[in-house]
């Protein structure tokens, strides 16, 4: 049985848990704790270790989705979770510009861990205060070649679309040698 893995990261309360929950075939395995600091104003519990979702591709292949803890004090987990990933999604709460800088910082950190492809998902596009993806790109100082996509993490089709597009980006970056090997 071969397993492949993608990581969903982003700031606290960006919607990572619901993103994975939207497509996982198993109830997302969550490790949540009651929040004891001032972030309680945003939500009552948060992911301290990771979210874990699974999609069975076929008899021989399984895709795992890992969600990173959003709070900075758990960033020691990020590197462990990023090991061996195919690529990653940076989920950003488009309606909370105060988190854009942190999202950019998380993106840079993950780029430092591994040179794997990624996309940025502008989440909560159903919120009337959400910044459009193009504006988010400029606010986060992202290059034009970075895909910044609209997302609603509770919506299965939206999440599917993000993951498919991440795979497209991964395919673009796949070395020719690897492509040739798979054809053989």
């Amino acid at each position: 049985m071969q397993t492949v893995k993608m990581v969903v990261t982003g700031p606290f309360n960006a919607g990572k848990t619901s993103f994975i929950g939207a497509v996982s075939e198993i109830p997302v395995v969550r490790t949540e704790r009651k929040i004891s600091d001032d972030t309680r104003a945003v939500k009552d519990s948060t992911t301290v270790a990771m979210d874990f979702g699974r999609i069975t591709v076929d008899q021989d292949l399984v895709l795992y989705l890992f969600g990173t803890p959003g709070q900075k004090r758990f960033d020691f987990m990020w590197e462990i979770l990023s090991e061996g990933m195919l690529g990653f999604v940076v989920l950003v709460d488009s309606a909370r510009p105060e988190t854009f800088r942190e999202a950019r910082s998380i993106l840079d950190t993950f780029r430092g861990y591994s040179n794997t492809p990624f996309i940025v998902a502008a989440n909560k596009q159903d919120d009337e205060d959400a910044w459009p993806p193009d504006d988010l790109r400029i606010a986060m100082s992202l290059d034009e070649n970075v895909r910044v996509l609209p997302c609603v993490s509770g919506d299965k089709n939206s999440v599917k679309s993000i993951l498919v597009q991440l795979l497209e980006v991964i395919l673009e970056y796949l070395p020719e040698e690897s492509a040739a090997k798979s054809i053989k």
Binding site: V23, I55, V57, D58, L61, S182
Partner: peptide, 12 residues
């Protein structure tokens, strides 16, 4: 390999 990625994509 590319084949693995295409299988995942189809499944998604």
């Amino acid at each position: 390999g590319r084949g693995v990625l295409l299988r995942v994509m189809d499944r998604l």
